[in-house]
Design a protein around this nucleic acid. Sequence first.
DNA 1: CATCCGTGGAA
DNA 2: TTTCCAAGGAT
Length: 357
Amino acid sequence: MRDSRVISVELLDWYDRHARILPWRSLPGQGQTDPYRVWLSEVMLQQTTVAAVKSYFERFTSLWPTVHDLAAAEDSQVMAEWAGLGYYARARNLVACARTVSALGAFPTTRDGLAALPGIGPYTSAAISAIAFDLPETVVDGNVERVISRLFALETPLPASKPEIYELAGLLTPAARPGDYAQAMMDLGATICTPRNPACGICPVNNGCQARIQGIAAELPRKAPKKAKPQRAGTVWIGFTQDAVLVETRPEKGLLGGTLAFPSTGWDGSALEPPAMADWQDSGLVRHVFTHFALDLTVMTAKLTTPPVRGRLVAIDKFSPSALPGLMRKAWSLVQPIQARQRSPIAKASQHPTRDD
DNA sequence: CATCCGTGGAA
DNA sequence: TTTCCAAGGAT
């Protein structure tokens, strides 16, 4: 118990001197932070790097300064602003959560109340509780799993070790400054106790680290072997007219759910028909890697001469590639020169349209 | 408990 | 080029 107290004090002391300055974060010792900004940042940061989140967070808080503003937004605009960040169920849950919170009047102030909201699970509910409401909840993310695994030299591989990690992390969580402590643990994991080459020499808690003492810090946490990714293939059709492009909104469930996209086949051989009768030309291949499979996507293009049986035509000057998820953005940038050239037959061959991503 | 769900940067 | 993985949640 005394050791755990030493560790949390050393960590907070280190955080006071080395905390990262981040857009959604208040300075060490400042205590509570706007729950809306904490929630928004935590959802964006789920399985996503700080570097990737920063610009999205600034954009969202600029467009929607409060949870009530976000609750009033159109689904399609939120999806468009989320495009490129990945894991699109987060964006759908984000809007649903904002509307529930707005109807309630404010965020729930207990962990259980928060955990009942869409898109808020064990980690995020604990993080909001600690950071926004100064509640001494046990915050365990990937950083904390790594730090705890090393401090106690846990040999049990993840995810089997999770219950033990949660228990040990709870023993370390201090009653005072729980929000700063949670962020200190995560900063330590992100900057010192890193996955590959931990900087044990400058770690504020290296004295109490069993893995460092045993010389196995870089080997922990052990993890169960992961499965190989299957290779899949599909086709996407980018149809256009003189002044419009054919797009659709994908179904809410499943891969890229709810995002703006070009009509495509499934990714497992399902043979859907093209969205219109046209002279489709093979315009190249896009290779993309998802979490659990790799995809080779054949990109077909055509100038449409008959009404599409699927999707909707969007005026080219109202079409923004930034509203597309990464996969579709890749397909668009591949064919955009072709599309632009064929829209303007008088364009000189020497004029190369610029790509927009 | 295992699987599904994105993306891009680093080593 | 390949591998790993980053502040997880839903089912």
